[in-house]
Each structure stands twice: as structure tokens, then as C-alpha cells.
Amino acid sequence: MATPAIRMFRRLEGLFCVYKPSGVHWKLVRDSVETNLLKGLNATSSQPLPQEVRFLAHPVSETEAPKGLTLSASSVPVLSKHPLVTGPEFQHIRVGVGHRLDAFSSGVLVLAVGNGNKALNDLYRTRVTRDYTLEGEFGTATDDFSHTGRVVERSTYGHITQDKLDKVLAMLQGANQKALLMYSNVDMHSQEAYEMAVQGLLGPEGKSQPILTGLRCIRFQPPNFTLEVQCLNETQKYLCKVVHEIGLELRSTAACKGVRRTRDGPFTLQDALTHHHWTASDVIRAIRQYHSKRNAKYTHTQIKDTALQPPEESTT
């Protein structure tokens, strides 16, 4: 028979996402979620102690006194099953982390509990794209491409206009489209490639270089600008480097002020739990919500897939 804690754990198994604040390592996020979940699990009401019949003698003499003077059968709780002796029922649970976020960046971080780890692996085996917003600032270049690094170069940015920035972004996106076709391992002159491209399924299998499938400027107030990026197989360091290269391409310099992930596969900002909500009850709700959403959308996956990747359609 399952104890309340086990039943609660069954409801916890699955995928959910949290909002990682910047300046915190993802391991710390994972560990604090795990401790919160353990706290919630072990706070559930424990089983009553099993009873055991024992022959109790006089309190003075030993339990197995010879003459059977005052032996009396009585039922006492088995203390070796007491929660203070056995320890909490759950001492660790498997919490898996999806695509990582480094300490500098913030945003949606996918976590999986228990059996959800399998689903997590399956999720990342399909080609998932991620959305980021990048905050950039013209005028400085730093050694680690972020605004906190050591400044290695300063430059002017008065000549940069939104047109010029868009031109550079379009060029960068074109180069990445070419890379996408190159990594997709299909002959470009075949019917197969045509059909895949029509469905928007062209892309790298498994590991590849980082590929930006979409790039757009959503705010331009020199020296600050904000980019929206869709990408595959990226790291946050690479995105910072992209900002740096855009600066160089515009005959200026740029440093990345923030990397924020707004979507990871099917997980969006709306689903993400902020750090006040990293408790067992909120996680259970988030997991149930994800399940119901996925079941509802399961029939429309084809449509959703093509809709999610508009840039690929444009190449065909």
C-alpha cells in the first residue's frame, strides 16, 4: 500500500519549468527545488506505527525474567519504524535539468522529477528551438562579451542606425540558414529534401554548431538595443558572442547586458514558476497544467511544428 508521501510523489513526477534569476547557478536552483519538494513530501502525514506484542515484566527486572513472575502481554508500538529513527521517507529525489542556463543569464529552465527525466530526454531528442532576448549596449567591448567583464575597447556608435542593424541581422540570419541546411545531412537536390523543407523539418540531427534560426531587433535606442533570437544547440556564451560580432560588423563594439530565455521548447514564460513558488503544491499544479496542455495539443502537433519555425519555410 502506498503511503501518502508516495502518492504525492507520483503526482510530482513530470516536467515543469522555473524562472531562474540571474546571478544564481543552475545547480543551486535545482538543489533548492529538490529540498523544497522533499520538504513538501516529508511533511505529509506519516503512517501510524505498527504494534507489536511483547511480554513485559516488572519494570525492575529484565524483560526475560526467569520465573515468569509478572509477565504480561501488551501491545506496544514498534519504535524502530518511528520517523525519528528511520529518517524521512524520501531522502533524495531525482530532479533533472533541461538545457542549461549559466549563472549570468536568467529565464525559463526546464526541470524534471522522477520519471519525468525520461520524458525530458525524449523532449531534447526531438529538435527543440529556444527563444532568447538579448540586451546589448554599443560602445564597449569586454573580454567575456558581457557588461561585467574587463573593458578591452571603446568606440563611438553615433553612426549606427536601425537600418544598418537590421541589414547586419539579416545577413547573419542568412549565414545561419545556410549552416542549417549544411547540418541537416540531406542532399539538397533531392525530392526528400524538398518535402522536408516544405514541412519545415530540415535541421541538424543531435549535436551541431549553434544555429540561429531567427534574429530580430525589437528595440533600438542607441546605445541600448534588444534582440529576439530563436536558436538551436546554443550556449549563452555563444549568444553573447553574437552580440559582440554584431557590434564589430557595424564598425563599432557591443557588449551583452543580459541574456534571458523566454521559451524552451513547449515551455514559455507564462508557465515558469518564480522562486517564491518553488513549493511542492505549486509544482504539482504546474505539472498537471503541462500534461493537460500537451494532451490537448497532441492532435495538432503537425500544425504547431510548422507554425513554430517560420524562418525555415521562407528558405524553401
Partner: peptide, 10 residues
């Protein structure tokens, strides 16, 4: 000790 609430597991 258990009845006093001492956490023997710890």
C-alpha cells in the same frame, strides 16, 4: 530518547 523527540536518524 525517541519518546523525548530526539532525532536518532540525524
Amino acid at each position: 530518547l525517541v519518546q523525548l523527540g530526539v532525532n536518532l536518524w540525524k
